[in-house]
Design a protein around this nucleic acid. Structure first.
Length: 581
RNA sequence: GGCGGCGUAGCUCAGUUGGUUAGAGCGUGGGAUUCAUAACCCCAAGGUCUCCGGUUCGAACCCGGACGCCGCUACCA
């Protein structure tokens, strides 16, 4: 069997803020778990991420904080990289679309993309009128202009939507517009932009998405929310042309020798997904694999591209980004033939995570109101794995869920510690106490032992199947079920009694418990890497213990065991950062 | 308005080629046990699967409708 190959990406975080638990639960943790699992099956994988530095939002934040945008994005890029490392979310590369090391390669790829699409005639150049602030010499994004709603006459309307009646509108329809940058009255001015002909790719995209409904045929478990939302959008509204340039100097310059392109940048949503490609190229270069090695991942029909994102990114990753790649194709093949950009194998989206502070109602995570649990703060007090466990256990895979402080403590203590940690602890300490720290003789198995070994095999298959389908919550539940079965087996075979009457039976029981622990070690590692390593150390497993195919490999009689270590610490509610600010 | 999602035990949620007594964890009640970070194990109670109608021999599941909650609706990641 040939080696499977995957290019896995996690959404580029915008580099004007810190990371909180919602970001992690949405895209990064499931992606990291998936990558660790794939590698354990022997697949060749590259795991790509980096910050999204371009666009007007970074400029706005920089202005508010009185820093240069370069400094701002560099500092948040570094902070995000630290947070990921602290959680053991380990990308092969963490780039940044405007970071000094990556900006050149990123501009090159983005501009090549733009030029290729332009050459294929899939842009329309046309003019429109937009509000312009003459004091700062800048066109105003919708949210930067406020005025009176043309429908309900409320004065709480922004350029995109009225806060009072909720109706959406065009910014030019706003009465008495006011620039929020300078409080001055903006003027209407003509501007020219390049529009991507999404309408020309609509039918292909629609067929492509529809083909993903059949899991067996497409070989990928697309979540129905991703398909329904994307297909629903196309069917309901069709795909109009969308502007892919902006009047902005912070970003990737529009690469055209055209006076109309002067002072314009690519739309941040155009260049951001290309970051996945440019960072891959940077990684290949870093590895000394040459300038064209990225094509091995992006333009090879044998490589599967999987994007992990939050629900807010669905239409961009399931429609716009595939459309961009499609627009570069010379062939008529929707997926793309070898040598062309390959459309994603899967786009895995989670819903948002709400938050519930003790004594308060569940609410949306909010940066501005301080209603968030920041990774930086969390890591000052706790280890990565308890958070990884909790965020996987309550993962918003089908619907929104909430980070609840009390629930976090109770799941850590009641599930991870009492079920999983305790099973290892009682098994290892027993072996040290009564078998000199060595794996006791297995001897002749009885039905109850065979059953337990069989549970291990079944757990490996089930956990693997769930992970292949990106059902992380269900996969973790299978692992925990095996840990619980280990506790059940321990209680049924009662080695603490047989040690006084029948050492052979006692040893057999502990041997089977250690064997269960060995399987658990491999199964838990993609979810909880540090705990997995500690398990492996206690069992003194050699190199390659992560290999999925070796999860049930027999642990040898007489093998020495490592010292028992505490896998999971007990948490008190008072340990928590309960202050929402 | 349009599109999409959700509504299953006290709580958090699983649950599709529609089919015997609807599942798990936590919580509660009872029992058992001592190897273990007083952890574990067993048993039990607890559900008109939001409501109404339809299709069907049979519906939590399919269809129509109602009610409630939520998201998206692309220049602000």
């Amino acid at each position: 069997m040939t080696q499977r190959r995957f290019l896995v990406t996690a959404a580029l975080p915008y580099s004007n803020g810190r990371l909180h638990v919602g970001h992690i639960a949405g895209a990064y943790l499931p992606a990291d778990t998936y990558v660790r699992y794939l590698r354990s099956t022997g697949a060749d994988v590259r795991f790509i991420c980096g910050s999204d530095d371009n666009g007007v939002a970074a400029l706005k934040t920089a202005k508010e904080q009185g820093r240069s945008v370069e400094e701002l994005t560099a500092s948040y890029n570094a902070a995000q990289a630290r947070d990921f490392a602290g959680l053991r979310i380990e990308f092969d590369i963490y780039g940044g679309t405007h970071q000094p090391e990556y900006v050149r390669v990123h501009e090159r790829f983005s501009q090549d993309f733009f030029l290729k699409i332009n050459a294929k005639g899939l842009f329309t150049k046309k003019s429109s009128k937009q509000l312009f602030d003459t004091q700062v010499n800048q066109f105003l994004p919708d949210r930067f202009v406020r005025g009176t709603c043309p429908f309900c006459k409320s004065d709480r309307a922004y350029g995109d939507q009225c806060e009072n009646c909720g109706r959406a509108m065009d910014q030019t329809a706003l009465l008495n517009p006011l620039s929020l940058m300078t409080q001055s009255t903006p003027v209407l001015r003509k501007t020219i932009h390049w529009y991507l002909r999404l309408d020309r790719m609509q039918s292909k995209l629609s067929e492509w998405l529809a083909s993903k409904k059949d899991i067996a045929a497409s070989g990928a478990s697309w979540r129905s929310t991703v398909l329904n939302q994307s297909l629903g959008r196309i069917e309901a509204e069709g795909l109009p042309e969308r502007a892919m340039t902006r009047d902005l100097t912070w970003g990737v310059p529009v690469p055209l020798d055209d006076p109309d392109a002067k002072g314009k940048s690519l739309y941040v949503w155009f260049d951001a997904p290309i970051g996945y490609v440019s960072f891959t190229a940077a990684l290949c270069e870093k590895n000394g694999e040459g300038a064209d090695a990225y094509a091995h991942w992006w333009k090879d029909t044998n490589c599967k591209i999987v994007h992990f994102i939050g629900e807010d990114n669905i239409v961009f990753h399931a429609i716009t980004w595939p459309a961009m790649m499609l627009a570069t194709h010379d062939s008529n093949d929707t997926q793309g033939v070898s040598g062309e950009y390959q459309l994603p194998h899967n786009v895995v989206a989670n819903s948002f995570l709400n938050i519930k502070f003790p004594g308060q109602e569940e609410q949306k995570i909010s940066k501005s109101r301080g209603m968030a649990v920041w990774i930086e703060d969390y890591l000052q007090q706790f280890d990565a794995d308890p958070l990884r466990y909790y965020l996987t256990a309550v993962a918003p895979e089908n619907a929104r869920t909430a980070f609840d402080f009390d629930d976090f403590v109770s799941r850590n203590n009641g599930e991870l510690l009492n079920a999983f940690g305790n099973f290892f602890n009682r098994t290892i300490t027993f072996a040290h106490k009564y078998f000199d720290g060595k794996v006791p003789q297995r001897g002749t198995l009885e039905a109850v032992d065979v059953e337990q070994l069989n549970r291990c095999k079944v757990a490996v298959d089930r956990t693997g199947a769930e992970l292949e389908a990106c059902h992380f919550k269900g996969a973790l539940a299978e692992v925990m079920a095996l840990a619980r079965s280990g506790n059940g087996y321990f209680d049924v075979t009662k080695p603490f009694l047989s040690r006084k009457t029948d050492m052979a039976a006692c040893g057999r029981g502990i041997n089977i418990c250690l064997q269960t622990a060995r399987t658990l070690t491999t199964l838990v590692a993609p979810f909880l890497p540090t705990i997995g390593e500690n398990c492996a150390r206690m069992l003194q497993l050699g190199e390659g213990w992560q290999r999925w195919s070796r999860a049930c490999e027999a642990i040898a009689d007489g093998q020495a065991l490592g010292a028992a270590v505490i896998l999971v610490k007990k948490l008190e509610t008072t340990d928590l950062i309960a202050d929402p600010h």
